[in-house]
């Protein structure tokens, strides 16, 4: 029996959602630990800390988005499932890798930057704006990898 290409396509979708999700979870976790420490001193900073903690959360969203795009493309959400060859399935899987890998690693890196930024606002609350921009610099690469994944997926003809 021939291996169905759907297996690879779903693996790609799962990798995008799973790995990028792990990246965000670790990143948000790192930022949250530092945030909790800052709030023991000054609970009034909750709003700013939460904002910074949320920043590394976007990789998970991008991963979900890419994975969802694959599912739509495969017609698994309403509509008729599209038959996928092994080659097409593998193409889809590889197209998912940019956001999967970069999402994982940039989420963690962004979490560390967000943690440092939380440390910054602990001492200089008036610099919240700048503190938000620094983690956003890391996120650039997650956005670019999402872009790559979307363009790759879009170029695969089923």
């Amino acid at each position: 029996m021939l291996l169905d290409g759907l297996v690879f396509a779903l693996l790609g979708s799962a990798l995008a959602i799973g790995l990028a999700g792990i990246g965000s979870a670790v990143g948000v976790g790192i930022a949250g630990q530092v945030g909790a420490g800052v709030m023991t001193e000054d609970p009034g900073k909750f709003g700013q800390v939460l904002l910074l903690q949320a920043l590394p959360g976007t990789q998970g969203i991008y991963g979900l988005l890419a994975g969802f795009w694959v599912l739509i493309k495969l017609g698994l959400f309403g509509g008729t499932p599209v038959p996928v060859t092994v080659a097409q399935g593998m193409q889809i899987m590889f197209a998912c890798l940019p956001i999967a890998i970069v999402g994982l690693l940039s989420g963690i890196a962004q979490g560390k930057t967000a943690a440092a930024s939380i440390g910054l606002i602990a001492r200089r609350p008036e610099e919240t704006g700048k503190a938000i921009i620094l983690p956003a610099m890391v996120e650039t690469y997650a956005v670019l990898s999402l872009l790559a994944t979307i363009l790759l997926l879009n170029s695969i003809k089923l």
Partner: peptide
């Protein structure tokens, strides 16, 4: 290009 990617997201 981030403008496009974020809008799509």
């Amino acid at each position: 290009s981030r403008l496009f990617a974020l809008g799509l997201s």
